[in-house]
Design a protein around this nucleic acid. Structure first.
Length: 448
RNA sequence: UCCUGAGUAGCUCAGUUGGUUAGAGCAUUUGACUGUUAAUCAAAGGGUCCGGGGUUCAAGUCCCUGCUCAGGAGCCA
């Protein structure tokens, strides 16, 4: 039989009243004497299969009785519509074949703790919630690629091994690289995206990024996926407009293609439906004023003690409490733009009207989802860029090739980076970012 | 790195003031049942109470120490 003729549960309604063959795993089983109900999952969905002893015969019925959770089986039977069946359809089992009877499956239908589930991540992926999140993740990835491809962007792949730091060295994973010495795992493909944008105009790089930050929170991974578009002749306004359109496109795609998954996750869809565009924008300085109106202080650790500083001083970066306060009443993501130069990366363009600020923006998601996007117009003036590299104590020789981009036809250009897992966390309403990537890498976990 | 909390059956947990043989639900095994929805009912098996040290006639329980895990902070996407 050709693979094209294989039948999957997600399309089972195309085969009503026909006999079909399904392959899958036992998700759950309920016995009732001569009648057994098998909940079969095949990766595309689940369906109830009804095994009735008089129809199957003693021998085959004993096979059904021996099945336990996650046994792998082939089932032949007729597809029937039934109000009693979860999902509306069920299979009247005519024949069954066992690939393998499962041993004691550790993830039972009852509750489990976080640490047990993450230790069994390779099996946890089979559970309905995780299954739904992974399908939404796949949909988000595809939405991102479709969005940029549709606008004529070219996908370029930036290297994972890099010789130097993009922003600071303390958070780099270091590895040996033959006789050359140390190489570092890429924290961002941005510098390479900039070079590519000068060649191709509009590009995006999409791949994993590695950060050795010792963060231990529900929104940090040491390995995460990031999409980074970079566009020649785009200013900061263009950059924000693009980020907004992309975000709307992602949410719309998931709402269109993943209704079932969002239902399994019990996500409040009405909240996502409000993400339609015209995201609010506020400058950093206005945001500081607003925080002070709301009496939100800066909280700083001094000798292990939390000290509240009022009013919030201009020049300090926003943390979680500030982001939450600024977005609490909003249905859509918020752009904060024009940050103090000192707290931002060297490559961001200083505002020609105010050198204390850079043309940078962050997009903070609603529903406490935090920073989803960070971007900026890039510094295109070679002298200012050199000044900033020196201020940050970075090694000029590392950036020789990067400076060439400002030497040979420098142009205004902009870009941003969006964390895929944070976006998936927001859209799915997942409690923890570790649920938003198949195999999370975190400060204290690298297995499985 | 800092702060807080937790570690008892395969899993989720209870375990009184320190006191006889450490319990429950799920999972597993066996049996009953023709419509179950995390099925139900009956029975059985299953324990290095995280490791080490201490106090005590007596420690799962109190003290010290180490390890592991979780939540939060900072940093960031």
């Amino acid at each position: 039989m050709s693979y094209k003729q294989k039948i999957y549960i997600e399309n089972i309604s195309d085969h009503i009243d026909k006999s079909v063959e399904l392959n899958g795993w036992v998700y759950n089983k309920r016995g009732k004497g001569k009648l057994n109900f098998i909940l079969l999952r095949d990766g595309t969905g689940t369906i109830q299969c009804v095994a009735f002893k008089p129809n199957l015969g003693e021998e085959k019925f004993d096979v059904v009785k021996s099945l336990n959770q996650e046994s792998s089986i082939k089932i032949k039977g007729k597809v029937v519509a039934s109000e009693k069946a979860p999902g509306g359809y069920e299979i009247d089992v005519e024949d069954i074949e066992v690939y393998q009877l499962s041993g004691d499956y550790p993830i039972t239908p009852k509750e489990h703790g976080d640490s047990f589930l993450i230790e069994n991540r390779h099996l946890w992926l089979r559970s309905s919630r995780q299954h739904a999140i992974m399908r939404i993740r796949a949909s988000v990835m595809k939405a991102i690629r479709d969005f940029f491809d549709g606008l004529g962007f070219k996908l370029i792949d930036s290297p994972i091994f890099t010789p130097n730091a993009c922003e600071g060295t303390s958070t780099l994973f270091e590895t040996e690289y033959f006789d050359i010495g140390s190489a570092y795992l890429s924290q961002s493909g941005q510098l390479y995206a900039e070079a590519s944008a000068m060649a191709l105009g509009k590009v995006y790089t999409f791949g994993p990024a590695f950060r050795a930050e010792k963060s231990k929170t529900r929104k940090h991974l040491t390995e995460f996926w990031m999409v980074e578009p970079e566009m020649a002749f785009y200013d900061l306004q263009d950059d924000m407009e693009l980020a907004e359109d992309m975000t709307v496109h992602i949410v719309k795609t998931v709402l269109r293609d993943c209704r079932k998954e969002l239902e399994i996750l019990e996500r409040d869809i009405s909240k996502l439906e409000k993400v339609t565009g015209k995201f609010p924008r506020i400058s950093y300085s206005d945001a500081v004023d607003k925080l002070n109106e709301m009496d939100i202080p800066l909280i700083r650790k001094v000798d292990g003690q939390d000290v509240e500083i009022r009013p919030f001083p201009w020049g300090e970066d926003f943390g979680t409490p500030q982001e939450e306060a600024l977005t609490a009443d909003l249905d859509q993501p918020l752009f904060i733009y024009n940050y103090p130069t000192e707290i931002k990366a060297f490559y961001m363009k200083r505002d020609p009207n105010n050198p204390k600020e850079v043309l940078a923006m962050d997009m903070i998601g609603p529903e406490s989802s935090g920073e989803l996007i960070g971007g900026s117009q890039r510094e295109d003036n070679i002298d200012y860029l050199e000044e900033r590299i020196k201020e940050e104590d970075l090694d000029m020789t590392d950036f020789k090739w990067y400076m060439d981009l400002r030497k040979y036809g420098s142009v205004p250009h902009s870009g941003f980076g969006m964390g895929v897992e944070r976006t998936v966390k927001w859209i799915t309403g997942a409690k923890h970012i570790r649920e938003c990537i198949p195999f999370p890498r975190m400060i204290h976990r690298i297995v499985p």
